[in-house]
């Protein structure tokens, strides 16, 4: 049942460039995919290990700025720049994680929020490097690989789709492995995990680094796809927005980040002109979900299918 849905979703995703009439819509979908990759990253740390990293968008920014700067200032091609961007995000993630993970609960959220905002302040103020509020423009598209060129909307769409597919595959493989089950076990009962000989600090750091890797990947794809970049993509409000997508899609689930992002981005564009009013609905929705339906759309769906299977 679920496998069939995934196959249908993949088929639709591949067919979309032939289905939608305007590149405008293609860009919206690709943008949603990029956000979804970042939301998958947030899901690894919040959904699996139960820790809320409010600096998540800053790691997205690290990946994005690294790719943009390496391409425009150092003349690197996209592919090594993307690798370096992910690496930069993970290395910073390891540094921030090894300090912030010593704090607990509310302190962790406050600490990471502060780190995130500091990084965003640097993006805004280090004008010689980052271009300040204007940001970086004219980021070149990826060079061709043999006959494959990446300088149009459609090829870029497939590139982003590929990154999203890779992200979902990573999350799936990790979640069901011993490593992923250890993530959720620690969130469930930290003391028992310690008593079972699990080095909780190390496992949490692993999750944090994986999470920041995905944020960096999303950032790199953003810089590539849009060709320009500014500090407004890295602030606390962006993390909050990703959090909204995750909670509505379903915290801790495999489909949740994608479903939540697509549904909300879709609704926002459906309500043309309502764009700025959408949070009048989504804000209270978030409050209601967290109280009555903490597993979101995907969690509710798997509960339903489990009920069908039980019949």
């Amino acid at each position: 049942m679920r496998r069939v849905l995934w196959i249908i979703a993949a088929a639709v995703a591949v067919a979309i460039p032939f289905l939608v009439p305007k590149t405008f819509y293609l860009q919206i979908v690709a943008g949603a995919y990029i956000t979804a990759i970042a939301v998958y990253g947030l899901n690894v740390i919040l959904g699996y290990t139960g820790l809320l990293n409010l600096g998540h968008a800053a790691f997205f920014g690290i990946g994005a700025y690294a790719v943009a700067l390496l391409e425009t200032k150092a003349g690197w091609p996209f592919w090594p720049a993307l690798l370096a961007g992910c690496a930069a995000s993970v290395v910073l993630g390891a540094m921030v994680g090894s300090v912030s993970l010593r704090t607990r609960g509310n302190y962790f959220a406050i600490f990471t929020a502060a780190v995130g905002v500091m990084i965003a302040i640097v993006f805004t103020n280090w004008q010689e490097l980052t271009g300040g509020n204007i940001g970086i423009v004219n980021i070149p598209p990826p060079p061709s690989i043999g006959p494959l060129a990446f300088d149009g909307d459609v090829p870029k769409y497939y590139l982003v789709l590929g990154a999203l597919a890779l992200t979902i595959l990573i999350c799936r493989l990790v979640r069901h492995s011993l490593v992923g089950r250890t993530f959720v076990a620690i969130a469930d009962n930290e003391d028992l995990a310690r008593a079972a000989g699990i080095d909780v600090a190390r496992v949490r750091l692993t999750a944090f680094m994986l999470s920041t890797f995905l944020a960096g990947l999303a950032g790199g794809m953003f810089a590539m796809y849009n060709g320009n970049l500014g500090p407004d993509q890295t602030g606390l409000d962006i993390t909050f927005e990703q959090l909204l997508y995750l909670v509505i899609g379903g915290i801790g689930t495999i489909a949740g980040p994608l479903v939540g992002t697509l549904v909300l981005v879709g609704i926002s564009h459906e309500l043309q002109g309502m764009q700025q009013y959408r949070f009048l609905i989504f804000g209270p929705l978030l409050v209601l979900l967290v109280r009555f339906f903490p597993l979101g759309i995907a969690g509710g769906f798997s509960r339903l299918t489990a009920r069908w299977a039980a019949r």
Binding site: L52, N106, F240, L244, G283, L286, V287, V290
Partner: peptide
Amino acid sequence: VNTIIAAVGVLFFLQT
């Protein structure tokens, strides 16, 4: 964490 998420919902609402 749920309390923080709910607060985020509130601030989105108030800002809008």
